[in-house]
């Protein structure tokens, strides 16, 4: 069904025509990257969807008229949309994406009800997924682990990361890219066509931990290579004691979910040098303490 589809550059006028010719990506003039149907690479034989069920759909052989093969996708999508299992499947996927790795049937039913009420209006369905009940239930908070990409970028934002202030300017971009590559999560770069995992377990190996914690420490400790700006945050918010600094970053990074023991440990981290001696902290040790907090379990949770 999907064989023969590819991406290429076409003229602006042809951008919506999957059968229009491609142009040279460099010398072909103004154009847009868009989808293209290459009939020569399409499996034009007959296909049967949902074979043997009430919803059986036959996609006819297009060998005699190869260009018609591009309709296969439309026929397949129509058949999938019409299948009665689709609403529950989509609703379950959305809940798993945004709320918890293990949505309950009750949660799914509530969203499916919205689907049925609105004829599958995805805006309203998404609104139901993001309901206050789902978002604020204390039982559900922390049931998603950040993907590597989310981990890297959320830490970066929380430290006022700005790729433009890194020195040289491309270094921060290269660093973030490399960390995501190491963690196996570059956007649109999954080798297999199944997509990146949605559930947490594949992202929770020992090596993931190593990279997540190492990244946080590097990015916090090295403002030049990463374009992070923790020192300015400390100044802007008037954080003039170890307690204020730890409490502020515990709120920003960990949503305030820090135990008394964890808080005490972080304050000690800030107040003592690497030899265990209590000495006045400097900017570098403040940055290290932020890196230390980024390695906490709470930061891995979304």
């Amino acid at each position: 069904m999907f064989t023969g589809w590819e991406v290429c550059k076409k003229t602006v006028a042809d951008r919506d025509d999957p059968l229009a010719p491609c142009i040279d990506p460099i010398f072909g003039g103004e154009g847009r990257w868009t989808s293209n149907f290459n009939a020569a690479n399409h499996d034009s034989g007959q296909k049967v969807l949902f074979a043997g069920t009430l919803y059986e759909t036959i996609i006819t052989d297009t060998t005699a008229n190869p260009d018609e093969g591009f309709n296969d996708v439309q026929i397949a999508l129509d058949a999938i949309v019409a299948h009665p299992s689709t609403p529950e499947f989509i609703c379950w996927k959305l809940l798993r994406r945004f709320i918890t790795d293990e949505p309950t049937q009750q949660m799914v039913d509530a969203v499916v009800a919205e689907w049925n009420l609105t004829g599958g209006d995805l805006r309203e369905v998404t609104r139901a997924v993001l309901s206050a009940e789902n978002l604020l239930d204390p039982d559900i908070v922390g049931e998603k682990i950040k993907s590597p990409q989310e981990h890297v970028l959320s830490a970066y934002r929380a430290m006022r990361g700005n790729t433009q202030i890194a020195q040289p300017f491309f270094l921060a971009y290269a660093n973030l890219y490399n960390w995501m590559a190491r963690m196996g999560h570059l956007p649109y770069n999954r080798v297999e066509p199944d997509g990146y995992p949605e559930k947490a377990p594949p992202w929770l190996g020992t090596n993931q931990f190593l990279d997540r914690q190492d990244y946080g420490m590097f990015a916090a400790a090295d403002p030049f290579a990463y374009g992070t700006n923790i020192t300015q945050m400390v100044a802007d918010y008037g954080l003039d004691t170890a307690e204020k600094i730890v409490d502020f970053f515990a709120e920003v990074l960990l949503g305030g979910a820090i135990t008394l023991a964890e808080r005490a440990r972080a304050i000690e981290y800030l107040n003592k040098d690497e030899f265990g001696n209590e000495t006045p902290y400097d900017d570098a040790r403040v940055r290290d303490t932020v890196g230390f907090l980024l390695g906490h379990a709470q930061f891995m949770e979304r």
């Binding site: 922390g142 949503g255 979910a257």
Partner: peptide
């Protein structure tokens, strides 16, 4: 200090 992510109320 238990903030908005506190788990004390967590149920089964």
């Amino acid at each position: 200090m238990l903030g908005k992510k506190g788990r004390a109320m967590r149920g089964n």
